[in-house]
């Protein structure tokens, strides 16, 4: 028996919006500690890892570990039927091949349930080793989204370089080049507006912008984004979900031939 009640149902709607274009089908893993997902995009260039910890749910019951294969496009269709203020409850019986999404309006005057068919998904689970990153940049998520969008009108790839000067996002294309430098800035009114750069070593890596733009769909989940870079490792683009967990995107770099 599985029953997860999320008062802030809009969080789940935002999570689906953030990942549905990157991943078609995925297994949601439910255990006593939380609700999680790990999946790669179809070309195995990017990986998404989601964690929603049990303490973030108002009610969390998961009697035994369960893996539920879902088509994210179909799941998104169902969650779009929930209001932004609705409470969302996920329910599944042991051995069932369906999951039920229950939507309750805040004043309890409307209750809907949507039952979705589960699917068998044969996906490999990857071990993500703990790594020391050469540079970690925390910046406003909207700023990062803006930079990725702007650069993708000029070129297809972005070079992200961290030096003691700051973090530089560069691209080039047929019409010209673009460089955007963000310096550390902690003298802001609100902590979420700060740009904080922790650098152990300078690092410079190249990534496909279309993936970065896809990751930026998670912007509504968090005011800030954390970008962790190490040479010869996938970049980690992390959006923390307040009090609950995170969505992390890993993107393999482009490398010199």
């Amino acid at each position: 028996m599985l029953e997860l009640r999320l008062v802030q149902g809009s969080l789940l709607k935002k999570v689906l919006e953030a990942i549905k274009d990157l991943v078609n089908d995925a297994n949601f893993d439910c255990s006593a500690t939380g609700f999680s997902l790990q999946a790669m995009d179809s070309s195995h260039v990017a990986l998404v890892a989601l964690l929603l910890r049990n303490e973030g749910f108002e009610h969390y019951r998961c009697d035994r570990n369960i893996s539920m294969g879902m088509n994210l496009g179909n799941m998104n269709k169902m969650l779009k039927c929930a209001g932004n203020d609705d409470i969302i409850t996920l329910k599944a019986d042991d051995g069932s091949d369906t999951v039920t999404f229950m939507f309750e309006s805040p004043n309890q005057d409307k209750i809907a349930d949507f039952e979705m068919k589960l699917m068998d998904i044969d996906s490999e689970h990857l071990g993500i080793p703990e790594a020391e990153y050469h540079a970690i940049v925390r910046m406003p998520s909207a700023e990062f989204a803006r930079i990725c969008k702007d650069l993708s009108s000029i070129g297809d790839t972005v070079v992200i370089s961290v030096t003691k000067e700051g973090v530089k996002f560069s691209t080039k294309g047929d019409i010209g080049t673009a460089n955007i430098v963000c310096r550390q800035n902690t003298t802001v009114d609100k902590p979420e507006e700060a740009t904080v750069i922790e650098m152990k070593e300078p690092v410079s890596l190249t990534f496909a912008l279309r993936y970065m733009n896809s990751f930026a769909k998670a912007t509504p989940l968090s005011h800030t984004v954390t970008i962790s870079l190490s040479s010869e490792l996938p970049v980690v683009v992390e959006y923390k979900i307040e009090d609950m967990g995170y969505v992390r995107f890993y993107l393999a770099p482009k490398i010199e031939e």
């Binding site: 990017a46 990857l126 071990g127 993500i128 770099p253 490398i255 031939e257």
Partner: peptide, 14 residues
């Protein structure tokens, strides 16, 4: 010219 690497080049099966 750059080549796109893949996630499996860095992370192994669990």
């Amino acid at each position: 010219q750059c080549l796109q690497s893949r996630i499996s080049d860095y992370f192994g099966r669990d």
